[in-house]
Design a protein around this nucleic acid. Structure first.
Lengths: 135, 135
DNA sequence: TTGGATGCAAAAGATTTGCACTCCC
DNA sequence: GGGAGTGCAAATCTTTTGCATCCAA
């Protein structure tokens, strides 16, 4: 069985062609695509898939912790298939989101902060990226 | 002259009653209100102010660095009148945004990261807050 | 006087929802 | 067979924009 199907079963979701297409599309993607971009690209290979299905599936994958939802682009949600702790840089000129390797004393296993139960940590840098700065 | 008016002049904006009302409304506010909330509350004391004016003014204040725009609430932009480096916790149950004091080895003067020019840093924690966890 | 600011309403985007139909388990 | 999943379109919510009018400097 494909690993994508396994992943879906593991988190209690039914295996459908649409969901497999979504998982395969975002697998290994380091560009942090938006839901719209994911939908748009999938619908070329999988005509007829609906926006709602993409949205619903992404939401369920996020909830299950299979993918990460980034709050870094002020205009829309961005998604990241890599869930291990790492950070991001958002270019306010071109809108690209870059992965960032940066040594921060952030233990990935913070459980509580000021009494609040922590489930996710995001460290976001914003500015102008290397490429855009050249212009 | 009031300090709010000074602030506006300093960043090259005309002093208008609407802008003064906006500045006074958000001054000292630690609840990280959304633009809609700011608009709604101001319009009670200042009937007739328009949404566009609130949005435009907030955008200009952010651009000038007088206030901070938070990318932490997946549903809308939140604003913070405190611009010094501090962190936030977002409760996904009630939607509140809390200030967080947490010692991280994040020097506030990071200029470049992987060649990208850094202008702002946000460290966001997400989960369920103390109050919501009780229920 | 004059360019920036405002108010209004419409438009644009992103996301969600309701519902009938479909198909995975 | 039954309930979750899908597709479609409409609805909702947030944010932006165009434009005529207004007013701070």
């Amino acid at each position: 069985m494909e690993s994508e199907a396994k992943k879906l079963k593991k988190i209690g979701l039914k295996v459908t062609p649409q969901r497999l297409a979504i998982l395969q599309r975002i697998k290994g993607d380091r560009t942090h695509p938006s839901a719209e971009k994911i939908y748009h690209e999938i619908s070329q290979k999988f005509p007829g898939i609906s926006f709602a299905t993409v949205y619903n599936t992404l939401a369920k994958l996020v909830e299950a912790g299979e993918i990460q939802e980034l709050d870094i682009d002020p205009n829309k949600k961005r998604f990241d298939p890599y869930t291990s702790l790492h950070y991001h840089f958002y270019c306010k000129t071109c809108g690209k989101v870059y992965d960032v390797d940066f040594d921060v004393s952030l233990t990935p296993n913070i459980q509580k902060i000021a009494g609040h139960q922590v489930e996710a940590i995001q460290l976001n840098f914003k500015g102008v990226c290397k490429d855009c700065a050249k212009r």
